[in-house]
């Protein structure tokens, strides 16, 4: 049953007015942080400021966020097995189109990771594209070979987070702070992390779409 409490609308109205007033009256920001960002861009190893924030300055957020993605997958896998897909066989057009499209998806994803260092792009956009490729493949009736649905699939799923943690711990081992990249190899390290993250994000999104753990896991 849908419910419409009579008090709700006035309450939300008040909330809306308060929030709007807060947004409109917001004081002018301190410009210190953006300036610091620009000053440190050169040693961050990325030329695109968003990538620099995501992977270097606030890389720890991104590490935990890879954790969130993996945790959601763990949750989904704990709930159910993969449902049996009852689609009819794809018709010829879809079949041919998907065969043409998937390589393009992968190519563009690779480009996005590469371009992410200097221009808008990066692991999440590329991963989303890979995920879409996975969804398309699935809808065309393709499935993961049982041989790969065990450990190899799991390795692929944790790769992004694992690479992040490994690079972070590596920094500890050479005596600097967790996740601090040595400036000389910062861009290389970030590319490695991004590539690993792209694969994991793509695989995770596709696996989330499938909606359950692979059969025969228990």
């Amino acid at each position: 049953m849908d419910t419409r409490p009579w008090l709700l609308l006035p309450l939300l109205l008040v909330l809306g007015v308060v929030l709007s007033y807060a947004v409109l009256s917001i004081p002018d920001p301190a410009q210190e942080l953006p300036t610091m960002l620009t000053d440190n861009m050169t040693i961050s190893g990325a030329h695109n400021p968003v990538s620099a924030v995501l992977l270097n300055f606030r890389g720890y957020d991104t590490l935990l966020e890879m954790g969130v993605l993996l945790a959601a997958l763990l949750g989904v896998w704990s709930l159910d097995e993969m449902p049996i897909y009852r689609g009819s066989a794809p018709d010829q057009i879809l079949d041919i189109m998907s065969r043409q499209l998937i390589p393009v998806f992968i190519l563009v994803a690779g480009y996005l990771v590469w371009a992410g260092a200097d221009a808008p792009g990066g692991a999440f956009q590329a991963g989303a594209l890979l995920g879409a490729a996975g969804v398309l493949l699935r809808l065309c009736g393709w499935r993961v070979n049982n041989r790969y649905s065990g450990l190899p699939l799991r390795v692929l799923l944790v790769l992004g987070l694992a690479m992040f943690v490994m690079v972070g711990t590596g920094a500890l081992l050479i005596g600097s702070e967790f996740l601090r990249y040595p400036p000389t190899v910062a861009s290389e390290l970030m590319l490695i992390i991004e590539s690993a993250a792209t694969l994991s994000i793509g695989a995770t999104l596709a696996a989330l779409f499938l909606g359950g753990r692979p059969k025969g896991e228990e």
């Binding site: 920001p29 968003v50 620099a52 606030r58 957020d61 959601a72 997958l73 989330l208």
Partner: peptide
């Protein structure tokens, strides 16, 4: 300022994850 942009990208991934879990539930 690019920090909010990065925050939003992080937020989107969190939202996607939560939505996936919610839909399966």
């Amino acid at each position: 300022d690019t920090v909010p942009h990065a925050m939003v990208i992080t937020g989107i991934v969190v939202a996607v994850s939560a939505t996936a879990l919610a839909l399966i539930l």
